[in-house]
Design a protein around this nucleic acid. Structure first.
Length: 476
DNA sequence: ATGTCC
């Protein structure tokens, strides 16, 4: 069967009509060039997702979509538990609650410039990065369970930040419904020394310049001004999330037949939301969300300490913290009827429009900050959630540039040392323990994030507010 | 993404 997306009335939306066992259509948000360049495996994977039990409305792909484990990365799918809807480990991904937070520094480029190198060097020392990196914090069993229940709120109680940070964190920094008992001892053991660490791959801590504001009013509400410095942290739940993903994918694949679920692809392993296994995954996955929130909160604390050393008196305040690998229970209208759905976003950012009750004062009027992380050496974007994306993709937007080339291909094409040198001539300081990692993350291995963001804007998924240019990048 | 296969 050929799963070919066809043009719709919108130049930024493409549709695969239901065929075979698909229960709903698949919709891909892209322009002509992005859809032409998109890996055909995305269309197949999205069509597979569209055939899962209880799926609502359509399976969606964001403009940065690329092939992933089971679900495409950049995929959004919502399921109704009352219609046999499922929850899928592959629909969340291995890096549970990977996300980005952006912090204001209140500094201008002129204030930063004389201290830039020192800041890069000290951040590289203070922020543990790389595969298997560990920090100075070692949690006891009791602390681990408290962290898995409390998330960033737990981290703040431990002295890593303030209540103000929690107001600007999705779910107020604490995901309800987490159950540490659903997380294996092995997953907890892996995480014991990994709190406050960045990890590897596309994770980073970046010092950025607000290079351009597109929407002055919203930028003012977000406290973003051209010429000012911000810091963005992109990471997730480290070994714990990965272990949860690995274990539950195995359980879900084994149990699928007992649950009467036909799997178009073994990687799409899932369980009914109402089943024991489904509930157990949700308890563990929500604990994973809290782990990621706590991790980014601790990294924020470490960053504050460094900034205060290099530029005494600097105050880092949080613009927003939002995840892009989750499954969340949300209220949505389907055919005019309000329903409680379980929305999977894998490599797709939550993007709540103006007026949404989950947004805090000061943001509710303008919409949620949607943080789109670029790849190393490229620009990032701050967007704002819009109301119409509720109908278009359950209030979701793209999450980054999206890979255009495999890691293996990238290492054959670039050398880490040359990539660092090249970026340095453009004034971008890279600090990484892994030259191979740097080669894998070479800017050329990714799609053009500006095009992806323009399409997200044009398609009505979110609207552009500001562009950020990198100055310092601490990589895993 | 990931102690890149306990």
């Amino acid at each position: 069967m050929e799963f070919r997306p066809l043009a719709t009335e919108s130049p930024y939306a493409w549709r695969i009509a239901p065929q075979g066992r698909m229960r709903v259509p698949a919709i891909i948000y892209a322009d002509h060039m992005l859809i032409e360049a998109m890996d055909h495996k995305v269309f197949k994977q999205l069509s597979n997702v569209a055939s899962l039990p209880g799926i609502q409305q359509a399976a969606y792909a964001m403009p940065d979509a690329h092939w992933g484990y089971g679900f495409p990365i950049g995929g959004v799918a919502a399921f109704d538990p009352d219609e046999g809807g499922v929850v899928s480990g592959g629909g969340v991904g291995f890096d549970i609650s990977c996300g980005v937070r952006t912090l204001h520094t209140g500094l201008t480029l002129d204030q930063l410039r004389p201290h830039k190198k020192a800041l890069a060097d000290l951040l590289a020392v203070a922020i543990p990065a790389g595969l298997g990196s560990t920090g100075t914090i070692k949690l006891t069993h009791r602390e681990m369970d408290q962290m898995l229940i409390g998330g960033a709120a737990w981290a703040v109680q431990q002295g890593y930040g303030s209540e103000a940070d929690l107001l600007r964190t999705e779910e107020h920094g604490c995901m309800a419904g987490a159950n540490p008992a659903d997380v294996s001892e092995k997953a907890k053991e892996r995480q014991r020394r990994e709190m406050g660490t960045l990890g590897s791959g596309n994770h980073y801590l970046e010092v950025q310049l607000v290079a351009q504001v597109y929407d002055a009013e919203t930028a003012a509400a977000f406290d973003l001004r051209e010429g000012e410095i911000v810091i963005s942290i992109h990471c997730g739940s480290r070994g714990l999330g990965h272990q949860i993903g690995t274990e539950f994918l195995k359980f879900m694949a084994t149990k699928a037949k007992d649950h009467g679920i036909w799997l178009p692809d073994r990687e799409l392993a899932c369980a009914p939301i109402e089943s024991k296994l489904g509930q157990s995954y949700l308890g563990a996955m929500r604990a994973g969300i809290n782990c990621a929130l706590a991790n980014r909160q601790i990294l924020t604390h470490l960053t504050r300490e460094v900034c205060d050393d290099v530029l005494p008196g600097t105050q880092l305040t949080l613009l927003y913290d939002v995840s892009h690998n989750t499954c969340k229970r949300e209220t949505h209208r389907i055919d005019g009827k309000e329903k409680q759905l379980f929305v999977h976003r894998k490599g797709a950012t939550l993007a709540l429009g103006p007026g949404h009750p989950d947004l805090p004062d000061g943001l509710r009027e303008v919409g949620q900050p949607v943080i789109i992380g670029g790849s190393m050496g490229t620009e990032s974007y701050i967007l704002a959630g819009v109301k119409e994306s509720e109908k278009l993709a359950f209030s979701s937007a793209c999450h980054g540039a999206g890979r255009a080339m495999s890691r293996h291909q990238a290492t054959k094409r670039w050398h880490g040392r040359n990539v660092i040198k090249e970026l340095e001539t453009r004034g971008i300081l890279i600090r990484s323990p892994s030259l191979r990692g740097v080669a894998e993350e070479a800017p050329g291995a990714y799609k053009d994030v500006s095009r992806v963001v323009d399409v997200a804007h044009q398609a009505g998924l979110s609207r552009k507010v500001a562009r950020l240019e990198p100055l310092i990048c601490v990589k895993g």
